[in-house]
């Protein structure tokens, strides 16, 4: 039962064009932003698998991930301009595409984000389940299962994560 609320079906309020390839991607990006302590990454590498890899430009998936990493929410009309904004902020970002399935999680819309800034260095595996719902299945090589709906307070979810998911240095940060 991944869908738990009437608002998982009617919603999110979001910028188009795709709830799984845009909104879900924003949520995974925003989650990573919060995991980085609520700061933008300085450097980020995003691997997209399967259906994510095939249609990512058409659905604005690149803008969505970067918008999320900049701290934007799914209904932020600034997502359109996220790539320009990332370049202005001198964020070193790169996408790589894997046509096959993700080795960590069985779903056609999966991604692995490796991001760092001066404070933290994180790896996040996220799947976009459809209708704007996402799932975090990996944090820093620890398997997990965190369901993200666009109404969730991602900062408080990150603040409640168990400490063993982070390195010693990150716990200090």
């Amino acid at each position: 039962m991944e869908f738990q609320s009437c608002f998982d079906i009617i919603g999110p309020i979001m910028v188009g064009p795709s709830s799984s390839h845009t909104a879900g991607a924003v949520s995974i990006g925003t989650f990573t932003h919060e995991l980085l302590g609520g700061w933008q990454p300085e450097k980020v590498r995003i691997t997209l698998y399967d259906s994510f890899a095939q249609t990512y430009q058409g659905h604005g998936t690149d803008k969505a991930f970067i918008g999320g990493l900049l701290g934007m929410k799914t209904n932020d009309t600034g997502i359109k301009d996220a790539l320009t904004m990332a370049e202005e902020n001198e964020i070193d970002y790169r996408f790589s595409l894997e046509q096959g399935a993700c080795p960590y999680y069985d779903h056609p819309n999966t991604s692995i984000i490796v991001a760092k800034n001066g404070r933290r260095d994180v790896k996040v595996g996220g799947a976009s389940l459809g209708g704007g719902l996402a799932k975090i299945f990996l944090i820093n090589d620890v398997e997990t299962s965190i369901r993200l709906s666009t109404d969730d307070d991602l900062r408080s979810i990150c603040n409640r994560l168990p400490m063993y998911m982070f390195t010693h240095k990150e716990r200090e940060a």
Partner: peptide
């Protein structure tokens, strides 16, 4: 069409199918 322009819509249940409802 608004969805395709990256305008704000409500996914019902998804953005790709947001027009019907």
């Amino acid at each position: 069409e608004c969805n395709a322009r990256m305008g704000v819509i409500v996914a019902t249940p998804t953005a790709g199918s947001a027009g019907v409802l």
